[in-house]
């Protein structure tokens, strides 16, 4: 339904997107996750035909967005980052205008507009001027605009941006609800939000699609093995010999050795199990452990490291490819 092939966008010299590709065929909520400036909005603008790509193409329901824009655009409802509202209109007038522009039959405009207002909960303010509405209501007017003409694909650029917690929950519920019979592509820079409502997550950073997968898969990908640090009253060699006998730990690394003490750092899948084994191994050897601690990186931290300094935790290129093709 939505096919994006190798999108590249450059402004004068600076490239913004470096070849983003994905394909969406089934209904559901698809979350675009990435820090600000990663290229989420640019990608969405290109998909909806508001912006041209330097290279690559977008096909919506079999229609190329550049070559057959009218057919393709009928299948898309788009809410840009700043809702495109005419401030001196009422929501009802505004929605009627958009519905007519989307080619809704004259006899159906009224019904469709009323239905979409009902769904987004803006019926109470239908006759007030949009400029007098609160930010949450404006956002909802924007969302209800995307539903007109019954498009299969709905694209929402940061739909919860700048809203209060209650409004955020409401919008999230609405997005989830709509995802049952639409393809919803929404963007956000908040990881929990994307995880909470998406059926599929795509992480974009620095103009590249890094990962795409189910939220659980994403979690697996991001979850790093906890790091265990120990300090024992033993020489480095002694401690190394003992650690070598313990199963389930990797990446053993000497931190320091001084005055009969030595410190090591290692990683383990199962922290609790590994810590127990280490403890008994040293106990059997009659050597005292003075420190045994572990440190786990939260998903949020891992995400931040992944998207900001991609070299800090540079995803193995082969692995990246694998994840992409698996879900691509």
């Amino acid at each position: 339904m939505v096919k994006v092939e190798n999108l590249v966008k450059s402004y004068s010299d600076a490239p913004v997107l470096h070849g983003i590709s994905f394909e969406i065929t089934e209904n559901g909520v698809y979350g675009f996750l990435g820090p600000n400036g990663a290229g989420k909005s640019t990608t969405m603008n290109i998909i909806t035909g508001c912006l041209s790509a330097t290279e690559g193409r977008v096909v919506i329901g079999g229609y190329d967005i550049v070559e057959e824009p009218e057919q393709a655009k009928k299948l898309i409802g788009y809410l840009p980052e700043q809702p495109p509202l005419y401030m001196d209109m009422t929501p009802y007038e505004y929605l009627c205008f958009v519905a007519a522009a989307r080619g809704v039959e004259k006899s159906e405009i009224r019904g469709q507009v009323e239905r979409s207002m009902e769904l987004t909960g803006i019926t109470p303010v239908r006759d007030r001027l949009i400029k007098h509405l609160s930010k949450g209501y404006k956002q909802r007017v924007g969302i209800s605009e995307t539903l007109l003409g019954d498009p299969r694909v709905i694209i929402l650029d940061e739909p919860t941006g700048g809203l209060d917690p209650k409004q955020i929950t409401e919008i999230r519920d609405l997005v989830r609800e709509l995802g049952k019979d639409h393809i919803i592509l929404f963007s956000s820079h908040i990881m929990q939000e994307v995880q909470a409502i998406s059926d599929r997550v795509m992480i974009i950073a620095k103009g590249r699609l890094i990962i795409s997968g189910k939220p659980e898969e994403l979690e697996q990908y991001l979850r790093r093995k906890p790091v265990i640090t120990i300090r024992a009253r033993a020489s480095a060699d002694e401690a190394a010999r003992i650690l070598a006998t313990v199963s389930g730990i990797d990446d053993i690394e000497l931190l320091e050795e001084s005055e009969g003490f030595s410190a090591y750092k290692m990683t383990a899948e199962d922290y609790e199990g590994a810590a127990e084994k280490i403890f008994f191994a040293f106990a059997r050897a009659g050597l005292a452990l003075t420190t045994l601690e572990h440190e786990a990186i939260s998903l949020e931290e891992a995400f931040l490291q992944l998207t900001s300094g991609m070299d800090t935790y540079s995803a193995d290129p082969d692995e990246e490819q694998k994840v992409n093709t698996k879900n691509g």
């Binding site: 909806t48 508001c50 009218e70 655009k73 840009p80 509202l85 401030m87 958009v98 522009a101 989307r102």
Partner: peptide, 14 residues
């Protein structure tokens, strides 16, 4: 200025 041009660009109108 109001970014409503994005709406016009994304609507199926020439």
């Amino acid at each position: 200025k109001q970014r409503t041009d994005q709406l016009l660009f994304s609507l199926p109108v020439k």
